[in-house]
Design a protein around this nucleic acid. Structure first.
Lengths: 198, 198
DNA sequence: TTGGAAAATGAACGATTGTTCATATTTAGT
DNA sequence: ACTAAATATGAACAATCGTTCATTTTCCAA
């Protein structure tokens, strides 16, 4: 099924924003990609900023809320929980739309305070909270050495983020990321060897 | 001693570029901060791009080349080498000018291919190479468990970068980074416990 | 089939952009 | 003190920006 003009605008705008940034993306460029005049855009959006905000809202709206009980159950198994977390992280990293939105976020992160706050919340705080709880359970179960759960969570997450960041940079120039395709799994293995009991 | 007009231009321009990005920084804004008219700028630089390129070149020109022999000697001691690496990394992270340049890099990273290549080279490849060699030596010395040195280097570096990235984001909004001030030292402790023999 | 709403058009606007240029001022070496 | 070079000025330029508006076209429900 074909997209409505409004949807087309959001699609083309998000692509341009993620490639050029907000400032360098002109209303005329967006309209041209959609196949209409710039004045027609204003029948669908109040202004340029509203287009951007609509896209930004969409990014965070699609964030999945995880079932606390299910996590606590899974965390008791130790490494498989981390493997599953990493797999999800990897899936998102290589998903085309997620990649575009991630780039859009990073490109505007340093000039847009609201986006920055939400980014830290969604990409850091939320993950740290989830992982902390999981590591706490693993310690209770005697699966991993005792430590500050928040620190362990920070250490675990940081590598995943770095890999994603690295992959994102390489893919802009269409460079190969094959040497990084299993990096997240390797990270889980390496990490688990470092924290497990014995 | 007071700065020359050319130096003033570079100083004010780098500040603006790191705050607004290249596109949003106008020649008039730079000139205004320096205290001259925009036309006077062109007595010192060919155009806006030349100002930016001069700054970009400076960033990478100041990168320190490390003494290979000294590193190999220090790596034999194991953890103290990592502690020293982290301390240097931390120093740079909290250095005012380095922070400004790091922000400038990140803000333009996604729209400037040349910058992107140099960034990966200087901030990733170089560090990975250095750390790989060190970890290789530590394995030879029987200080740490055997593993792929590149993987261990990647794991070690990723956390440091993430901390720096996190701190950079928080400092834009003048938010407290005190809870992260010792994170790099904690990282070394945690990491060493995970890789050391026994 | 028709009428009204929705969507698209083309021209125009004021503001801002990077850059140029003729001219004026300041600076430094003799 | 004189001169030439270096530097600063103010006005102007063409291009591009986001946005508005009167008008026309398209579309769909009655």
């Amino acid at each position: 099924m074909s997209l409505s003009t409004k949807e087309k605008i959001l699609k083309e705008a998000s692509t341009l924003f993620s490639q050029l940034g907000y400032k360098a993306t002109s209303v005329r460029k967006i309209a041209s990609k959609v196949g209409i005049r710039e004045s027609a855009l204003y029948n669908h959006f109040k202004n340029k900023e509203e287009i951007f905000l609509t896209i930004a809202d969409e990014i965070f709206a699609t964030s999945v809320e995880l079932d606390r009980e299910k996590i606590q159950e899974e965390a008791k198994r130790g490494k498989p929980f981390l493997a599953r977390f990493a797999t999800t992280y990897k899936l998102v990293t290589f998903d085309k739309n997620s990649e575009k939105m991630f780039r859009l976020l990073l490109i505007e992160l340093f000039t847009n305070e609201a986006l920055r706050k939400k980014f830290i919340q969604e990409f850091h705080d939320k993950n740290i909270k989830l992982l902390s709880e999981a590591f706490f359970i693993m310690m209770q179960e005697g699966l991993i050495r005792s430590n500050d759960p928040m620190l362990v969570a920070y250490e675990f997450l940081s590598s995943l983020f770095y890999i994603r960041f690295h992959i994102t940079l390489l893919r802009i120039d269409s460079e190969s990321t094959s040497h990084l395709s299993t990096q997240m799994e390797k990270h889980v293995d390496f990490f688990w060897e470092g924290i497990k009991v014995q």
